[in-house]
Amino acid sequence: MRSDRHQSAPLGLKIAAAAGLLFLHLPILLIFVYAFTMEEKSYQWPPPGLTTQWLAVAWNRPDVWSALGLSVKVAAVSTAIAMVLGTLCAAAVSQTKFFGREVISLLVILPIALPGIITGIALRSAFSLAEIPFSFWTIILGHATFCVVVVYNNAVARFRRTSGSLIEASMDLGADGFQTFRYVILPNIGTALLAGGMLAFALSFDEVIVTTFTAGQQQTLPIWMLEELVRPRQRPVTNVVAMVVVLVTFLPILAAYYLTRDGDQVAGSGK
């Protein structure tokens, strides 16, 4: 317990914390203003005027839609694979003790601990050594690999809180292993899995570093944005897409937060 005497923070600390939070949020808010600017050739501030016409222009762009479609498909498939692999791994690591447990948790975390460019170029050179042509599935190989850790982290945290005696009680009452899984384990870890899945989806949807190495000529939405960043051609459309991406990624994060907020380990605290 903390004492009540220290409820109020020193003024300097309040200012520093508030300034830090503003530093984190103002740039993102700025995106929302730029999506409506009338200026199309430069990043001029203040905007000369506001308009909603770019929303319609962006809506009618087939390249944006196909990039978005590919991103959603990749994220969905990678999340599905990651949820199966991550849950299996978490169940094995948290429910039993065995030789090499630490090594396995290290192995799962490695793809996200090492810089993304290493994962990317490693996969790229492996594809070229094995003469695998770039396809939808080469993107999936990369994405699922680093999505596993997000699901794993969430599931492990929940397994740790789930008491083993619940499972024993279920067995004592005559349930077989599958019934125990279906009626006892799954309801207990369900929200954590869902949260992990949403975070994995957000991670994959946004990934660009590994994707540039594994996509070949295909364009996911982040790759589309990267090309616009390197060689700006349609700034207003990019502004609108940026705004939409911010909105789309916020939803799964908020959902994951609400699904796990009552626990001691809230989802998303490690990316």
Binding site: L21, L24, H25, P27, I28, L30, I31, L199, A202, D206, V208, P222, M225, L226, L229, T238, A242, V245, V246, T249, F250, I253, Y257, G268, S269, K271
Partner: peptide, 16 residues
């Protein structure tokens, strides 16, 4: 307030 910037799109942040 910490989580949303952490998870919002990397490219969008650079773009901003």
């Amino acid at each position: 307030g910490i989580m949303l910037p952490l998870w919002s799109s990397y490219l969008v942040k650079i773009y901003a």
